[in-house]
Design a protein around this nucleic acid. Structure first.
Lengths: 166, 166
DNA sequence: CTGCTGAGTCTTATCTTGAGACCAAGTATG
DNA sequence: CATACTTGGTCTCAAGATAAGACTCAGCAG
């Protein structure tokens, strides 16, 4: 049966998962960051089934992370370019990559190193508080309902429990 | 046919996707960060099918992100607690959340705000370079083969192209 | 005329997921 | 004592998603 959509959940994680929470979408985006643009290139690099790739590229374009643009007229052929929204997703991939480097690498070390051209160092990503710059850990971070939290859910007891309302 | 496993790809993103790249796993983890520990609580909060939840909890425990611990003896009942490896995944969820806040929120604002108890401010996550502290963007970041990159792939022409080797 | 390239579509078989029934052990209720 | 309830699952079946690979279509090369 069709999976429930998370798009209307009052949670940005769920909405993000709804857009790209399958096995291929993050990898398609990773390829795009590596400079891949064309259907057949994506297909060959990833080994993804062609129909599945068609579907993922279409959805990423619909959701505004990729832009489908013709690059020849006759015959009409297309390439897929990252939009600003798509490029901004780079941080999420870096965070995933960093977690994997730390917890999934074997003795032989990390498979890929990240070089920050701006400071010129081999480095890695860190998720910090935009205000104070310190790392954001689960222990010293708390969630509260924001302005976009649906009115009708605010008074729900389960929601009150979750956000530890007084 | 069975989906190919990404576990052996020379890429931490792929390995991470392999562990938690489906619709439910990130949400199960999010619930864990909200303090949820028991089977039925996860099930009710998420509305996930029970058999699917069984599978996700088992895999998260096998992969070392959750620990399954008995909390009563007779009858034997279990709760699922975040390990250090699991707690460290918080950064990835924050990065996803931040991206969703920025690109998926409507006019009414973000559904959930993040409060950084350490500095006492309502804030949001940012992915920065661990060395210089500046934001890490796709434009000024490059990837290179690390020590854990498989020897036999190093000389492959497609790999050379990808990492722009001289 | 034949074959090649790019960007797909179509078919079929297999896998994954959801819904909901069922189960087992202990506990509370009448 | 009989019944119902709670927790943490398992089992079955139907429906949706995915993989593999053949096929298509338009233009171009030899």
């Amino acid at each position: 049966m069709r999976r429930t959509s998370f798009a209307n959940w009052p949670c940005s994680i769920a909405r993000t998962v709804d857009l790209l929470g399958d096995w291929w979408t993050p990898l398609v985006l990773r390829e795009a960051f590596y400079g891949i643009r064309r259907f057949d290139e994506f297909q060959q690099e990833l080994g993804i089934a062609r129909n599945t790739l068609t579907d993922r590229l279409r959805r990423l374009a619909e959701d505004g992370l990729l832009e489908k643009q013709p690059y020849t007229h006759e015959p009409r052929r297309y390439e897929y370019l990252l939009t600003e929204k798509g490029r901004d997703f780079f941080g999420v991939l870096l965070a995933m990559s960093r977690w994997g480097d730390q917890w999934l690498s074997g003795d032989e070390g990390v498979p890929v190193t990240v070089h920050h051209d701006r400071c010129g160092q081999d480095s890695h990503a860190e998720v910090v508080c935009a205000t104070c710059g310190d790392p954001m850990r689960a222990e010293d971070t708390s969630m509260r309902m924001g302005p976009g939290y649906p009115e009708k859910l605010r008074q729900h007891p389960a929601v009150h429990r979750r956000f530890a309302c007084a």
